[in-house]
Computed example of a mutant assay.
Amino acid sequence: MNRIDRLTAILTHLQSKRTIRASELAARFEVSLRTIYRDVRSLEESGVPIIGEAGQGYSLVEGYRLPPIMFSREEALSMLVAEKLVEKSLGEESSKHFKEALIKIKAVLKTSEKDLLVEVQDTIKVLKSNPSQMMNKSSKAFQTILEAISEKKVLSTAYMTFDPELRSERELESIGMFQSYDQWYLMAFCRLRNDYRTFRLDRFSHLRLTEISYSTTKHPSLQSYLDKISGERKLHQIVLEVPDGSMKYLVNSKYNNGFVSEKKVGELTEMTFMNSSIEGFVRWIITLGDMVVVKRPAVLQNRLAELIEEIKERQG
């Protein structure tokens, strides 16, 4: 960050808080305290009314306001993602206040950024959100994919499939992203398979934006694609009983397996899942050993019994 950008950012920080310490600014911009002191002095000399209180920090004179802040394309897109997540993660009242605040922020965007948000807002969906989970390593791919969607540029990728684990090189025409529980997915037209595919963001080992453009008019919308796959995939309702002492082992992994709800039944917790793959689910359950009991469906109970017998035979 050059000095002009840093001075502007310091002004933004001063307006965002009542007071801010020089040490906070130094840590934020990864510069020395001496550099921050010089920057503040430069701002004062340019006419910005900054108050410095010993032991307290810096603040702007009450009533002083900066001109409208200019956001970059990346920052504008990040606001859109935050809006989608908050809508699912917060209660109705808090979500309402957040949206109202965001409208005020959007009001200072440049026309090009406003147009960009309108254009890409339907390419990002949050289906099921788990507020306790932070975005994992998929965040490394997130910004590159947002850029590909907004600029309609082909992505050159390296992707690791789940079963079997194979690495393949793919060129993708991005249609949109969606989140389900704690995983983000990309829906794209795969030029290798000549068909539409869904990719988990954390399974990309390489992502590069190419200069090859494509038209979205020939592709379905993200929502229509989601409606299509949800209709094609038969979802199984799965109910497990878990002793209280074993719940801690399912806290993180349950969201990767279609967790829907849970309720207390005496000293047990009854957990409900919706999952399209009996085979994938039973192989997760078997890693939990004696910590869970499958209540239904019967097809899962039977497959679990079969798998246990197969393991016994293989072990001799």
Rank of each mutant, 00 (worst) to 15 (best):
F189Q: 01
R21F: 07
S205F: 04
V40D: 03
F259W: 06
E83P: 06
V239M: 08
V154E: 00
N275S: 11
A27F: 08
K114N: 05
R73H: 13
Y37H: 15
R3M: 08
L155V: 00
N302H: 14
Q237H: 13
R200I: 07
K248Y: 12
T12C: 10
G280P: 03
G245T: 06
H97T: 13
S156F: 00
Q121W: 05
Y185C: 03
A298L: 12
L117Y: 09
P131I: 09
S46L: 11
G231H: 11
S276M: 04
K106F: 09
V81C: 09
K152D: 08
V251P: 03
Q15N: 04
A298R: 12
Y214R: 01
D227A: 10
T287N: 05
R21D: 07
V239R: 13
I36C: 04
R283G: 00
E270K: 13
S72Y: 08
M291G: 03
R314W: 10
N256R: 08
Y64Q: 06
V294R: 02
K96T: 10
S168P: 03
S138H: 02
K99F: 06
T287A: 03
T216G: 01
K84I: 02
E30C: 07
S230N: 13
Q315I: 10
F273Q: 01
E92D: 06
K96M: 10
Q183C: 09
S224E: 12
K114S: 07
M247K: 12
M187G: 00
V265G: 00
Q179F: 03
A101N: 11
K96R: 15
S42Y: 10
F204H: 02
R41E: 15
V251T: 14
G55Y: 08
L288T: 03
L240I: 05
L116E: 03
D182Y: 04
L300E: 02
I50Y: 01
R233V: 11
I285D: 00
G266E: 07
M291F: 02
G231Q: 10
S46H: 12
L60Q: 03
E165Y: 12
I278L: 15
K228W: 10
K99C: 02
L90G: 00
L66I: 11
E279Y: 09
A298G: 04
